[in-house]
Design a protein around this nucleic acid. Structure first.
Lengths: 166, 166
DNA sequence: TATTGTTATACTCTATAACTATA
DNA sequence: TATAGTTATAGAGTATAACAATA
């Protein structure tokens, strides 16, 4: 499952709006999966550009949030939560540690406990603020609509996907 | 904007459910963007495995649908609709043409009109059926909820993303 | 000048396999 | 045996730059 919040997928792709391609039929535009993907890409693009202001990609901001909420958790915990394989967590964590945002301290000889440095915590707070604003922007867009229902629907779809994957 | 329906992102990643990681806090689980991404990935994974049965990836199935609905359209039209760059359309179309699913015929010396072959049309019909079933499966999951509202919310979010991208 | 198709190329994300050390 | 971290590597997907031919 891909939960990871890297933004390369949509980075520059939002430069131009999609499909103003007139006179062409677009039978997939009304497909639920297609709409979900477009909406997801739109939110990711917005978050990506907002986080770029503080030098982070979405996946990095997300890791700071998770480590901040779970000091002492290990690298593999984060990977499992985000659906990132062990092998791919290595350069991700190394980069954040290399920038002095988080520390690795051995716990039992094979695991490394993660925690935020002072600088990491400061940045984490900024990430949280940016995510708050970002989310608020979209919830404002949905004013008048039942956002709780939207969340419930998304939760059901995500869980069904996991179940269906066996 | 990434609308493309490739499935590599989530291909094998759905092997195991996410985040049963007990006792850990997951502050991003309630973020709208994160939920959208998870839901989107779940639907993509389902569609990906359903289409794999007929030897297609989501992006390929989508192209067959679009060409089928717009016979005579050119490669660049499809690219614009799906947010795929010209350069990246080349191997995609070449592969489908190479499999005898679609034909390229010159229209004005620089553009190539696309159309489905008989085999391509047969496969397109299967794709459509698979997408119907796939969508129905998730709509069944949302029974009792207002799916129209969900669609409207997704449309608003996708459009805001495009607008915000300027 | 702008567009179409194309090639070449690089970067990111993901996946697998294999290794070491530890539980 | 299973887990944690690591390395190396391969495959998608996407991005830019450049080119030729055409509109």
């Amino acid at each position: 499952m891909l939960i990871v919040l890297g933004n390369s997928i949509i980075a520059g792709a939002m430069d131009k709006p999609i499909a103003p391609v007139d006179r062409l039929q677009d039978p997939v535009a009304a497909r639920l999966g297609y709409m979900l993907r477009r909406a997801s890409a739109a939110m990711m693009a917005g978050l990506g550009s907002a986080l770029a202001d503080i030098g982070l990609r979405p996946v990095e901001g997300t890791i700071l949030i998770l480590v901040g909420a779970n000091p002492g958790c290990i690298q593999s915990d984060i990977g499992r939560m985000l659906g990132i394989k062990r092998a791919n967590m290595v350069p991700l964590i190394a980069a954040l540690a290399g920038r002095g945002l988080l520390e690795k301290s051995p716990v039992d000889g094979r695991s490394l406990a993660l925690s935020l440095t002072a600088g990491g915590e400061a940045l984490r707070a900024q990430v949280d603020k940016i995510m708050d604003r970002h989310e608020a922007r979209f919830e404002r867009l949905l004013a008048g609509k039942d956002v709780t229902l939207l969340r419930e629907a998304l939760r059901l779809i995500a869980e069904e996907g996991e179940a269906g994957a066996e």
